[in-house]
Each structure stands twice: as structure tokens, then as C-alpha cells.
């Protein structure tokens, strides 16, 4: 029996879809069976970031309205055998999706997969309700900005009212270390203290993420970038491992180290 995790944030543009794609990919890297669901009807992106856009034949609305079987709509990832994507509809009427329909789909997927990652649309309307309906737990994504933290707080309040759901966990995305140091960005500790939920990962603002997304290959696949390691750590924490938080400091180059050595002497 699998576990359904919804990735949500309230505010748009904080990296829900990127986080969904990368957590899914990282879990697949650890040989878990993963299914990604895009619930952002009308503005689907997850397929683009996964590089699976050209394979879509049926979508989630087709499944709910009975035009195809769930298995037919699932797209197998080109890199992993046990990573699938259920894409959102791009054109259909979004009122077709209901909480009940979502619950049915997720229950069916849970038989087959270890993890079902649900990418939630921005906002707190019906789309959010649908995405949350079948989930067992939630991961809230925020960035170190006031507006984003405020919306995360709002979403956590709503999630806490949801029955049958474990306490949500937090991912802080797009951290810029130099701004956080200078106090221009809200500190990780301050965010955690305000939202008072468990932190499951911090992800640095990394250019590699944008490059990878544009190529249709989630950054979690590239082994060396900081963001990739951050996403893999999140996946490990989902599996129950205890992994220390990534250091925000940049690796120092040789030149920098020599410079510091001489400064120490003077």
C-alpha cells in the first residue's frame, strides 16, 4: 500500500512543480515505484519539466470521465521503469475533476506504487481541494519571502483542518545564502519558528535547476549540483532516514583557501 504526498504552497511560483518533479525523480533513483500526478488543470507544467510532453495521449480528466482506463493515461518515464506521470488536462473543463474522483484515482494508484506525488495548483480553491483530498500527508513549499511565508502559513492552517492527514512538513526553496546572511532574506530558523512545522529540506537557488527544467530533465538526475543533493536528501528523509541539513556555505576554491591562509598569518 503506497503513500500519497501532496506538494502545495498556496502562493504561485515558489517551485511546487519543480519540487514535485525532483522529489519524484529522487525517490525513483532510490528504486521506489513513484507516480506523479499533475492536478493543475489548464496550466499543466509537470510534463514539461519531466520532458514527457510529447507522450501525452490521455489525461486525468479523460480518466475521471471514463474515456480511458487509468493505466492508459499513465506515462512511463523515459529514464526509470517505475516512474509514471498522470498529466493534467490542458483544455477540458476543470470542473470535471472532483474530490471523489481524485480519491478514487489515488486509491487505485496506491495498490501499484510506493509513492504518489501530487502536484497541487496555486491558490486555495477547488483545484487545491481536489489535490489535497486523497493525500496522506503534505509537503508545503515556501521561499524566504514574506508573501510566500504568509501563504504557506495560511495553507498549513487549512491542512491542519484536513482529517486523515499527518502534520505537514516544510521545504524552503530558492535560498540565496548571501542574502540570508546580510539579513535581506528571512532566516531559515525564523521561518521554521513562525510556521512551527517540521522542516524536511532546504534547497538553494541554483541555476542548474532552471537549466535542467528547460531540458526536461529534473535536476535531481545530475549528481553534483547543490540543488540535486538537496532534493535527494529530501527523498531520503521521506523514506525515514535522518540526514543532516545541507550546509549553505559555498565550497571554497583553492585560490580562496590560499588567500585565507595568508590572511591568517598577517
Amino acid at each position: 500500500m503506497g503513500e500519497a504526498i501532496v506538494i502545495t504552497s498556496g502562493k504561485g511560483g515558489v517551485g511546487k512543480t519543480t519540487t514535485s518533479a525532483n522529489i519524484g525523480t529522487a525517490l525513483a533513483l532510490m528504486e521506489k515505484k513513484v507516480c506523479l500526478i499533475d492536478t493543475d488543470i489548464g496550466l499543466r507544467n509537470l510534463d514539461v519539466i519531466m520532458g514527457l510532453e510529447n507522450r501525452i495521449i490521455y489525461d486525468i480528466v479523460d480518466v475521471i470521465e471514463g474515456r480511458c482506463k487509468l493505466k492508459q493515461a499513465l506515462i512511463r518515464d523515459k529514464r526509470f521503469e517505475f516512474l509514471s506521470l498522470l498529466p493534467a488536462a490542458q483544455t477540458s473543463d476543470k470542473t470535471a475533476v472532483t474530490s471523489e474522483g481524485m480519491k478514487e484515482i489515488i486509491t487505485e494508484l496506491k495498490q501499484e506504487y510506493d509513492y504518489i506525488i501530487i502536484d497541487c495548483p496555486a491558490g486555495i480553491e477547488q483545484g487545491y481541494q481536489n489535490a489535497v483530498a486523497g493525500a496522506d500527508r503534505a509537503i508545503v513549499v515556501t521561499t524566504p519571502e514574506k508573501a510566500s511565508v504568509r501563504d504557506a502559513d495560511r495553507i498549513i492552517g487549512l491542512l491542519e483542518k484536513e482529517e486523515m492527514m499527518e502534520s505537514p512538513r516544510l521545504v524552503i526553496n530558492r535560498i540565496r545564502n548571501h542574502m540570508m546572511k546580510s539579513g535581506d532574506m528571512i532566516d531559515v530558523d525564523d521561518i521554521v519558528q513562525l510556521l512551527s512545522i517540521d522542516l524536511i529540506g532546504i534547497v538553494i537557488d541554483d541555476e542548474e535547476v532552471i537549466k535542467a527544467s528547460n531540458k526536461g530533465e529534473p535536476v535531481a538526475l545530475t549528481p553534483n549540483s547543490k540543488a540535486s543533493i538537496a532534493y535527494r536528501n529530501i527523498a531520503r528523509r521521506i523514506l525515514g532516514e535522518s540526514v543532516p541539513l545541507q550546509s549553505l556555505e559555498d565550497e571554497k576554491g583553492m585560490f580562496q583557501r590560499v588567500k585565507e591562509f595568508f590572511r591568517m598569518g598577517s
Partner: peptide, 25 residues
């Protein structure tokens, strides 16, 4: 309880809240 953004707590009498009132709450 934590009173989060968008939440409103209405009380008759005195209120002793054990928890925070976050911005927007």
C-alpha cells in the same frame, strides 16, 4: 493552538492563548 494567517478566533470572556498569533491571524 497556533492562529495562522487567515484564521480568526472568537471568544466570549477572557482569552488565554497558548501559542502564537501569526501575521494575518
Amino acid at each position: 493552538q497556533i492562529i495562522r494567517s487567515g484564521q480568526v478566533l472568537n471568544i466570549t470572556g477572557d482569552l488565554l492563548l497558548i501559542g502564537d498569533v501569526n501575521p494575518g491571524g
